[in-house]
């Protein structure tokens, strides 16, 4: 594409302002329209986001790696049967399907922490970010009894159903966040103490925006470790846990 040489395209003489923002400024113009290269750039970013939504959780690879760590592991899905239903019916994404529910109810382990790896709106985010983050976090959690669950067609609140079916004390849910054009593979972490059905957002803590240009693994790990220790100490999660930066740095 040789935009510079094609005459109808006018460049904007304020491209230097791009250093202050990642917004799409100083795009130039052709007539009233956005120059073709920029149109295609946006289209590509949108295509990336759309593809992120339909990626699938790599359950086989995730399970293989986690099994090698020696923890119990379960594979479940929600009642949403496909992506279209998942998008239209968030309520179904919060409920376990019958087989999954029965499988978890058979659990005999006494579990302190259950990690749920959930696809959400960007499974690729979890495929990419979950294991590296766990490798940093798990060494901090000596003494807790731990289990893992992979969950597909999952919304955040499915963690409550999983935690309560397993009778676990605490749920840490990794989930793919709604993809933005600049962050198609962004992972969020939600933590809940004493999970049970019907909990709302004020009972959860959230760490958001974990991706290559966002929150890095080290910071996300120390935040997650902090939330886990605070929750077990106070036996609660959500708005009653205030993230105290000073305390966090000393922690």
């Amino acid at each position: 594409m040789k935009e510079e040489q094609s005459k109808p395209t006018i460049r904007d003489p304020w491209e230097n302002l791009k250093e202050f923002t990642n917004a799409r400024i100083a795009l130039g113009s052709v007539g009233n329209a956005i120059p073709l290269n920029e149109v295609l750039q946006l289209k590509f970013a949108h295509a990336h986001s759309k593809d992120a939504i339909i990626t699938e959780l790599d359950v086989v690879a995730l399970k293989k790696e986690m099994q090698s760590w020696g923890y119990p592991i379960w594979e479940v899905k929600s009642q949403a049967s496909d992506r279209a239903e998942y998008l239209k019916r968030p309520d179904l994404g919060r409920i376990l399907d019958k087989t999954s529910e029965a499988l978890l109810r058979k659990n005999k382990y006494s579990l302190d922490i259950i990690f749920v790896l959930a696809d959400g709106l960007s499974a690729g985010a979890v495929n990419q970010n979950a294991l590296p983050l766990l490798q940093l976090l798990l060494p901090q959690l000596q003494g807790y009894s731990i289990g893992f669950v992979t969950a597909t067609m999952a919304r955040v609140a499915l963690g409550d159903a999983i935690g309560s079916a397993l009778n676990a004390k605490f749920v840490v849910l990794f989930i793919g966040e709604r993809p933005g054009l600049s962050s198609p593979e962004s992972m969020g972490i939600y933590t809940t103490y004493a999970p049970k059905l019907g909990l709302t957002d004020e009972r959860r803590n959230c760490i958001s925006n974990i991706h290559s240009n966002g929150l890095n693994y080290q910071h996300a790990t120390s935040l997650a470790g902090y939330l886990i220790r605070q929750s077990f100490a106070k036996q609660i999660s959500g708005v009653d846990i205030k993230i105290n930066l000073k305390e966090l740095l000393e922690d």
Binding site: A23, R24, I34, L42
Partner: peptide, 11 residues
Amino acid sequence: PGSDDVMLNYQ
């Protein structure tokens, strides 16, 4: 700018 809201993540 360019229809891409880089804060609210929508177009």
